[in-house]
Structures are given as C-alpha cells and as structure tokens.
Nucleic acid binder design. Structure first.
Length: 272
DNA sequence: TCCTTATGTACAA
DNA sequence: TGTACCTAAGGAC
C-alpha cells in the first residue's frame, strides 16, 4: 500500500474530512492513548507529507503539535462516514467528527511530536518528487558520487524521499536502465528524465490512489493481451512479474534480492 | 487453519 | 547482514 503517493493522498484526505472541525481522538488499541487524550476536541489545522512520512497538525494558540505517522510495510488507513462502527482491537488511532471517522492500523510510527522534532525529520529526508520544495540536483549530487547501485539509491530515503519498491522497479524499466548500474554512472540527462518521470507517475498515483506505470501504447488492450492487474492495484511492467514475459520484448522478467527487498527487471530491455 | 508474503525502517552485531 | 516490529490477505492443506 504505502509509497509516497499514498501518503500525499492521505494528507489530502485527512484534511478534506477533518480540517477545521473539532475532532474526537482515540486510541482503541491503547498505544497512543495518552497523546489522544491531549488532543481530543482540538482542531486539525494542517496536514503534510514528506516522502512516506505523514504529519497531522493540531494548533493551539501557542504552537503546533503534530501526529507523526509512518505506515511502514503494513500500516493501513480507512475512512468512513458516521456512525463509526465499534473499533477493532488493532485500531491505533481513530479521528472522528460529526460526519466522518478514520482508523489507522499497524503503523510503524504514530507519535506526538513538536515543531522541532518534525523539522529534524524533514532534515534527514531527501527531496520528494511530490513536493514543490524538492531539489532534484541535491539528489543527483549524492547519486553521481556513489558506487552503490541505482536500484539501492532510489530506495534510500535520505537521497530521494517517497520512492518505494514499485516506483523503483518501474521507473528503471521505463528508462531502460540496468538496476545494478552504479549511481555515479547515471548521467545528468538520465537523472533529469528519471526525476521528471517520477514527478508525473507519482502525481498520477496521488490522483488515482494506485500505481500505474504502463504507457497507453503498451496497455493490454493496445497489445492484444489479457489484462493483469497486480494485487497492489495497478498495471505495471515488471513489479512482481517474475518469470512472466516482458510486455515489450517477451523475455522472462528477472527477480533478485537486493538489500532485503525484491528487485524486478527485464534483462533484455534494461541493459544500459 | 496454518504458512507465506507485502508498496518499510531501525537497530544490533 | 540479520532481525524485530506491526497487520491482513491469499494460498496451501
């Protein structure tokens, strides 16, 4: 579920359902109870995403408290209309107002933090293709100096924030780049193209709340093959398509372990 | 009903 | 590099 596009979409959705309304905050599961008690009745004033980190701001006259959420691998968020059903035991955080509720389950992080602590998180994250303040040159500076593979670098949140295993695999396929190439062998032209593509793909991901990367001319309809949508909800070239034929050349898609994650690529199309 | 897997990260050794 | 953490869905039996 969660790459950067999911988190930016959540920032929008939390705001549209809860911003400016008195909000009842609870932690049915208990791990966020103390903070929830402090916040309940407060107004959600601001929501923000940086990479895979979500910040929900509750301003009092003095300063802003932030709920910092990171979904990790399993975290899920579900919105609904009131009346809210009784929460299940796994709900870490529930916000509820007169019209809506939202439940958070299974996050890696859900804590109450200050402005200063929030800034520290921004400071250790790289540029996010979905943020207007993103500096793609800062990312390239680090990539162009690194002997590490581009596949690993794209997953490093200090270098670029928000890209996960799906966007990593797909953007490398779309640019015909061998995932094992060293960062320092990526040219400025290639990096600019990768970045621009990530901006476009991830914006579409926010809009549709899913990851689709297949160009119109390569869709199942256009290519005369049966549609196949992955469990993650979108149509892709290589992600989780190991041993299936490449949409473009028919070669079997490869898979390998890279830094404890599954990497997918087409050994024929991605030889540059 | 059990086992595996997953779009992630932090920490220990 | 390995492991711990958090949850739920799908597949094997």
């Amino acid at each position: 579920m969660p790459e950067g596009h999911t988190i930016h979409r959540l920032a929008q959705d939390y705001a549209s359902y809860f911003k400016g309304t008195p909000t009842h905050v609870t932690s049915p599961q208990g791990k966020f109870s103390d903070a929830a008690a402090l916040l309940t009745g407060a107004h959600l004033t601001h929501t923000e995403a940086h990479g895979k980190h979500l910040f929900l701001g509750f301003r009092d006259p003095e300063n802003t408290d932030w709920i910092h959420i990171h979904l990790g691998l399993f975290g899920k968020v579900t919105f609904g209309a009131t009346p809210a059903p009784p929460p299940t035991e796994t709900v870490r955080l529930r916000l509820a107002n007169a019209t809506s509720y939202v439940d958070l389950r299974g996050p890696t992080t859900c804590t109450l933090i200050t402005d200063t602590e929030k800034q520290a998180i921004h400071d250790r994250l790289g540029p996010d293709p979905l943020r207007t303040d993103a500096d793609l040159k800062a990312a390239y500076k680090r990539i162009s100096r690194s002997r590490t593979t581009i596949a690993a670098l794209l997953m490093d949140q200090k270098i670029i924030a928000g890209v996960g295993n799906v966007y990593r695999a797909e953007v490398l396929f779309r640019h015909h780049i061998d995932p094992y190439r060293a960062g320092r062998d990526i040219t400025p032209t290639e990096w600019n193209a990768i970045w621009a593509d990530l901006v476009a793909l991830m914006r579409e991901g926010v809009r549709n709340n899913r990851i689709d990367t297949v160009r119109p001319e390569h869709t199942p309809e256009a290519m005369g093959r049966p549609p196949r949508v992955d469990d993650h909800g979108g149509e892709v070239y290589v992600y989780r398509r190991a041993t299936l034929p490449c949409h473009l050349c028919g070669t079997e898609i490869s898979t390998a372990d890279l830094a404890a994650r599954n990497l997918f690529w087409c050994p024929t199309c991605q030889r540059n």
